[in-house]
Design a protein around this nucleic acid. Structure first.
Length: 624
RNA sequence: GCCGGUGUAGCUCAGUGGUAGAGCACACGACUCAUAAUCGUGCUGUCCGGAGUUCGACUCUCCGCACCGGCACCA
């Protein structure tokens, strides 16, 4: 028996969980459950990341303290995990004492490694802006690009982690452990970054208040990622060097979506090296979900209706679909119609109906599960296929090929259906063939039990229902042929996956469109924006930026310079004289060394189309 | 602009240096134990385009096109 520690990221708790979170967590759950039935000792961690300026800010807009806001949000996550049958052993909150103690210990270790230094961060500082300006954003005069005031040369203390020092060791680790990052495409990307050099990274924020103070200098708050990443050890009781920690660390798999692999595969290992702790074995990144071919987007109202689909098809169908349809690591397109097809074809027709027809025959012809007699060749074939299915499944699980794993199991399901067909069991209910019928039906039932074990990591409820109907009182997790006892009574129940017709589905979809809710803002919020009509007087490309144009806009009373990301859609000369809508009270910014004082409104999707008044209006007219 | 990936049947994808495969969908047939389920048979493909290497390429190399991703960058 070995141990297996799998984690999801701790999700950032400034909003409700969505299908992407569910996908990561289900994948991790499948791994955890798989290792449990293999007899391994498993720990499965998920949780929420509750610190940082963003949460502070969101809490404030809701009129809550950050802690109260987090206390409200955390249960939303745990409820979803319950609904999705997630079998996590730990749910970690970064506001917990356990985590805080662990972080303090970890940061102290990091500090004592000598690779944390207090950098007298010095630079050109603008007092009104309350920020530093990097050299590259400035011209020779060293004036604030926004306020046009001379900048001060200011020194501020800040803590840095000497990430650059670990570049070589990381490269070495990557080459010694080719599987460290999965899939390979991500690994290559990271190697690219590694080879082009790492810079030391700041690990503290003095402007942020909602977080964990650095143990060696409480004036500074740990940067969110520095606070978050060590959750993988703090959750196990790293602070007290607990038994659990020593048993499970290093983790076998850190599961996550692809956008956060850099933190996990570069920064986190380097931090562990500095603290002299072992590194996780594998960083596994999956792709993103799209919906009917479109990127998910809160503002555009494109989301995956988990609740609706789960209500219609059940949790297991949802889990099955996510794991079966998408090749792990790549982006996957979530399509309700495909879910529907998968449900009917794989779950209802192939599996559900197989169970039902076999139980029907047993019920009608035997008092309980019949005893098998001498097997024919065809029977042996089934037994052998069960074995090879299990072996192939193991291979696929080792490479996170959940889709292939399920396909492999379903080949067996279909084989058993064919077995029933080929042997024509239903014709054998005569005295002279009854023993033969018993043998075949025993094999079918045992095949179903065997299948239920194999699918249990993916569809745990279904697996249990199958075994219950077969007559087992306790769930048997062992994939070894012949464990099914004879003479026990089967209890054929309702079909486990009743077929669902499309009518119901369309009705559901109508309901869905009706419910497309948007997040509302108050009129006061809207009034905060000062929108004006302007006219473009000049437009030119910005060197080294494909998307940007530098525009001069006449607002009647004043002229503004605005940078707009429209170069891919508008040629500079067509823009001259064009009427546009400008957000004039947007805070200024410097982009690609060019100052921007406002923003041009445009409808933007795949294409970008400028918004313009319908007829002539004076320049400077307010837009409401 | 730099780096990487992908492009195979209507759909989702697998695949090998020797004249193409699975599942779904579709058509026909068989069967009736079963959830209008199951089983069998069949169907469509310039395997993105072009050039090259080779006796022979969908499979290798190069060029191009399209799409996707990473970085630079989207006020």
């Amino acid at each position: 028996m070995s141990t297996f520690y799998v984690t999801t990221p701790i999700y950032y708790a400034n909003g409700e969980p969505h299908a992407g979170h569910a996908y990561t967590t289900i994948a991790a759950d499948v791994l955890a459950r798989y290792h449990r039935i293999k007899g391994n000792e498993v720990s499965f961690l998920t949780g929420v990341d509750e610190h940082g300026a963003n949460i502070d800010k969101t809490a404030e807009t809701e009129g809550l303290t950050p802690q109260a806001f987090c206390d409200k949000l955390a249960p939303i996550f745990t409820k979803l995990w319950e609904r999705l049958n997630i079998s996590n052993d730990i749910f970690l909150r970064t506001t917990s004492e356990l985590h805080k103690r662990g972080i303090r210990k970890f940061l102290t270790a990091l500090y004592e490694s000598g690779d944390v230094y207090k950098a007298p961060y010095e630079g050109h500082y603008c007092r009104p802006c309350e920020r530093f300006f990097p050299e590259k954003e400035l011209t020779d005069e060293k004036i604030c690009p926004i306020h046009k005031l001379p900048l001060e040369w200011v020194k501020e203390e800040n803590y840095f982690f000497r990430l650059s020092k670990y570049q070589d060791r990381l490269l070495q680790h990557y080459s010694d452990n080719p599987d460290f990052v999965y899939p390979e495409s991500r690994r290559n990307e990271l190697l690219n970054v590694l080879e082009s050099g790492l810079e030391d990274t700041s690990i503290s924020r003095s402007s942020v208040s909602w977080g964990i103070p650095l143990p060696f200098d409480p004036e500074h708050i740990a940067y969110v990622w520095i606070d978050a990443l060590p959750n993988y050890i703090t959750a196990l009781g790293y602070d007290a060097d607990s038994e659990k920690y020593r048993t499970f660390w290093p983790a076998n798999v850190h599961m996550m979506a692809k956008e956060i692999t850099r933190f996990h595969a570069l920064l986190w290992p380097a931090m562990l090296m500095a603290a002299n702790l072992p590194l996780p074995k594998q960083i596994v990144a999956h792709g993103w979900l799209t919906k009917d071919g479109e990127a998910l987007s809160k503002t555009r109202g494109i989301f995956i209706d988990m609740d609706g689909d789960i209500e219609t098809y059940g949790v297991d169908a949802f889990r099955y679909y996510l794991m079966r349809e998408f090749s792990f690591g790549n982006d996957g397109d979530y399509r309700p119609t495909r879910l529907h097809q998968r449900y009917n074809a794989d779950l209802a027709n192939d599996l559900g109906n197989l169970l039902n027809r076999v139980l029907g025959l047993v019920n009608k012809n035997f008092d309980g599960i019949p005893a098998p007699s001498t097997p024919d060749d065809i029977d042996t074939e089934i037994v052998e296929m069960a074995q090879t299915t299990s072996e192939k499944l193991d291979e696929h699980m080792a490479t996170f090929a959940f889709d292939s794993a399920l396909e492999t199991i379903w080949e067996f399901v279909r084989r058993v259906n064919r077995y029933v067909q080929q042997t024509e069991v239903w014709t054998l209910a005569k005295p002279e063939t009854i023993p033969r019928m018993g043998t075949i039906l025993y094999n079918c039932l045992e095949a179903l039990r065997y299948i239920s074990v194999l699918i249990s990591p993916y569809v745990p409820e279904t697996a249990e229902k199958i075994q219950k109907q077969i007559g087992l009182s306790e769930f048997d997790t062992v994939a070894e042929w012949g464990r099914l006892p004879v003479d026990i009574e089967v209890s054929r129940g309702e079909p486990i996956f009743p077929r669902i017709d499309l009518k119901k589905e369309t009705a559901k979809q109508e309901k869905k469109t009706k419910e497309q809710k948007s997040s509302l803002i108050s009129f006061a919020d809207f009034q905060k924006m000062d929108l004006r009509v302007g006219s473009v007087t000049s437009a030119e490309p910005i060197e080294g930026a494909d998307r940007l144009l530098k525009l001069q806009v006449d607002l009647g009373t004043e002229k503004r310079q605005v940078v707009a990301g429209i170069a891919e859609h508008y040629k500079p000369d067509i823009l001259i004289g064009k009427k546009v809508i400008v957000v004039v009270n947007l805070e200024p910014a410097t982009i690609r060394n060019v100052e921007s004082h406002g923003m041009i409104l445009a409808a933007s999707d795949e294409s970008v189309v400028l918004v313009s008044p319908e007829t002539e209006v004076p320049l400077g007219t307010q837009v409401r």
